[in-house]
Design a binder for these strands. Structure first.
Lengths: 193, 193
DNA sequence: TTGCTTTAACTAATATAATTAGTTAAAATA
DNA sequence: TATTTTAACTAATTATATTAGTTAAAGCAA
């Protein structure tokens, strides 16, 4: 027999991503993952604390990936254009990685500071994109919540097959975002560029 | 010993709702459910096809409950007011029944016509609320998608603790909805009422 | 009522998954 | 080269889902 397989967290998370993207997060099991990696499932305990630990790591990894995917879209432009870019990138990511995206929506527990931190980074990125609108503090929070709701809701409903009507999905997001942007414009008197 | 417990689907789904609202959908198990009902887990197979069957039934039951909760809000008023009422009712439901709401977001499989049907009923209800805006057909679909995204996204983000900022959540939904409505108004030249 | 049918409980047994404990091979490093 | 650490391994336990076959009790018909 050849030498033992020797893995690191990166390889494990890549394979786990493959599995959840194919079968959904709730179908993820240590047995199947171990099989795919050509090791035995108890060996995985050297890398994380059981199935829950894996899901936690996957949530962090996925959120970092999401952040990296959003970043170029967020910094490359300003104002309305930046919101559209961010939105497209967000939905893109959720479509390319349905299972990994699902994993990012984990509820962090008290101990889980890393996950909380990376999730906050994503929120900050969305806030930055709205910065050029010069919104009053509290209103900025409400509007960020709205934008995040649209993006997350849209991504989730695509995944669960919630949008069945024979109307082009790719048109819907920019239109919905436009409506939201127009709402912002007509709500706040803004001095933009 | 007293006589055997004798259950029907209604009692089972009520107890299952209690459990998922308390512990989350992914913690639902036949063992725990059977224990709570004072029967043995194999007995549950007389009522549905295993754990997946239970989740399917729970999805249907939950969607029906959601529909019933939305209905009075949707029919009691018109236009902007109806959208606000529907939105409040939707978020309410997801807060009162976090686990049951989670269950309603099940992806229906081919065989699962009942679930598809009740899910469609909810979508139709949302469409009806937008009817008084006299939107052009395709635009109506885009806007329904937007409204559903906001509602589902908002409900999900509340559940996963996605909104951490110390700003009143109950204010956010009407503000976000107002922005969306204003966007609709400024986008489509409308002849209302 | 009496007896048949159906429902929904039961026990027993199996399979799969997660997990823990203790062990060992191999890589990294002093 | 010798030591330490990492990350694999096997063996065993526990929990859960599931299947098969059985039985008690409710509902209904003669």
């Amino acid at each position: 027999m050849g030498s033992r397989t020797r893995l690191d967290m990166g390889i494990i998370l890549e394979k786990a991503t493959e599995l959840v993207d194919r079968n959904g997060l709730d179908q993820l099991s240590l047995n199947m993952l171990a099989q795919e990696l050509n090791i035995k499932s108890p060996s995985l305990y050297n890398h994380f604390q059981g199935l829950e630990g894996l899901k936690q790591q996957l949530a962090i990894y996925g959120t970092e990936q999401l952040y990296a995917h959003l970043l170029p879209a967020a910094i490359g432009s300003k104002g309305d254009e930046a919101i559209h870019g961010l939105s497209r990138a967000y939905i893109d990511f959720a479509r390319i990685h349905p299972g990994l995206y699902e994993a990012t929506n984990r509820i962090p527990d008290h101990s889980d500071e890393k996950l909380q931190h990376v999730q906050e980074e994503v929120v900050k990125l969305v806030m930055q994109v709205l910065h050029s609108y010069h919104l009053e503090d509290e209103m900025a929070i409400h509007i960020v919540r709205g934008l995040r709701s649209i993006l997350h809701g849209f991504a989730s409903l695509i995944r669960t097959g919630g949008f069945q009507m024979p109307v082009d999905l790719d048109k819907s997001i920019p239109i919905v975002i436009d409506i939201f942007i127009e709402g912002i414009h007509s709500r706040v008197q803004q001095e933009e560029y």
